Amino acid sequence: MKAYIFVLALLIIAGCKEPTEKLRIQPSKTKPQKEAGLLDPDSADSLYLTDKDIMEIQAKNQLSKKEALMKIPDDRTILKAVVESKKLHKETDDYLLDYTYPYLNETVDPKYKTFNAFMTESYLNVERTVNEILEDKELLCDTLSIKRYRDKRIIDFKLHANDRNLVSILLYKENYYSGMLHSTYMFDCLNYNVDKEEFIYFDDFFIAGAEKKVFDIINQTIYDQIHSGEMFYDCWEISDTDFKAYKNNFVINDNAIEFYFDDCIICPSYTGQYSVVIPLIEIMHLIERYQQPLLLASR
């Protein structure tokens, strides 16, 4: 029985942690590194956790992760005449979908139709969503070979109002899969220029050839935050492959640009850390719009 409980405790700690040899930032040689997490596997106390103890720890951790996302600053009230919160709710015996998503008021400006059409096609297609859930389950960490709950996907959003008519939106997806120890999180970021009726991506926002420099800044930020204690020691540098996959996943506010990554990309699931914040002043030299005045001044 003790061995069984010990294995469960290790599962909580391990989460979806990357192997140590893969892209892990090495700790200082002068300061011993202690495994970050909810429990210390070397502690005698971890051998005597009951199933109830483990469930309580997981529930508390899941709540703190969700609360942290809900506390992200949001400009929805500022743009309430333009941005509406709409709902989609669908239940079957196998799954539940509960979406809160942004809708731009087309009576204010017909140009918003492009954005709403994209949302409908990309997120409100129920058949596609169900297929995505089935595909995602094959890539999960922390799976157990038991059937406990219906699969669920819950979507909500945060919105940032920017100058130059740029609307920056974070969509966060909370996924509950049958056989999982806890829910997982996925993120999509949308930046939409309402004047030009187009979405803004990495190559639109940053100057040509900025990929390698932004990649290095993100990894340096992760390294610095781990060693300052702002990020768990169990987090790691992002790989070049993952950067290419997530480089368009950023939101912009007046002071910073924030890159978002799904569970298990930069940190184990239990940490509740998904993003890297870079102050605009540190990356301004790579942003396209800040170079335009300099080009005009040089002529």
Rank of each mutant, 00 (worst) to 15 (best):
M1G: 13
L11N: 14
K17R: 15
K17F: 03
L23V: 04
I25R: 02
Q26R: 11
Q26I: 09
K34W: 06
E35Y: 12
E35L: 15
E35M: 15
L39G: 01
T50F: 00
E56Q: 10
E56P: 02
I57N: 00
Q58W: 08
K66N: 14
E67R: 15
A68L: 05
K71E: 09
K71P: 00
K71I: 02
D74L: 00
D75E: 02
A81C: 03
E84F: 11
S85V: 08
K86W: 01
K87P: 01
L88P: 04
E91S: 14
D94M: 05
Y95T: 02
L97A: 04
L97S: 02
Y101G: 04
Y103S: 02
K111T: 07
T114W: 08
N116Q: 10
N116M: 11
F118T: 10
T120S: 13
S122R: 14
S122V: 09
Y123E: 02
Y123Q: 00
N125S: 08
V130C: 05
V130F: 05
E132S: 13
E135F: 14
E138Q: 09
L139V: 10
D142E: 15
T143E: 12
S145V: 04
I146P: 01
K147T: 14
Y149A: 07
N162E: 09
L166K: 07
Y172H: 13
S178P: 00
S178H: 01
H182C: 08
F187M: 01
D188Y: 08
C189A: 10
C189Y: 02
L190N: 01
V194S: 13
D204L: 05
F205K: 02
I207S: 11
A208C: 06
G209R: 04
K212N: 14
K212S: 15
D216F: 10
T221K: 11
I222S: 04
I222C: 07
G229P: 01
F232D: 15
Y233F: 15
D240F: 13
D242Q: 12
K244E: 14
A245W: 10
N248T: 07
N249G: 03
N249A: 07
D254L: 05
I257D: 00
E258N: 05
E258H: 03
D262S: 08
I265M: 08
I265C: 06
I266E: 01
I266C: 03
S269V: 12
V276E: 02
V277D: 07
P279H: 07
L280H: 04
I281R: 12
I283L: 05
E288N: 11
Q292A: 12
Q292I: 15
Q292F: 13
L296G: 01
L296A: 07
A297W: 08
A297K: 12
R299N: 11
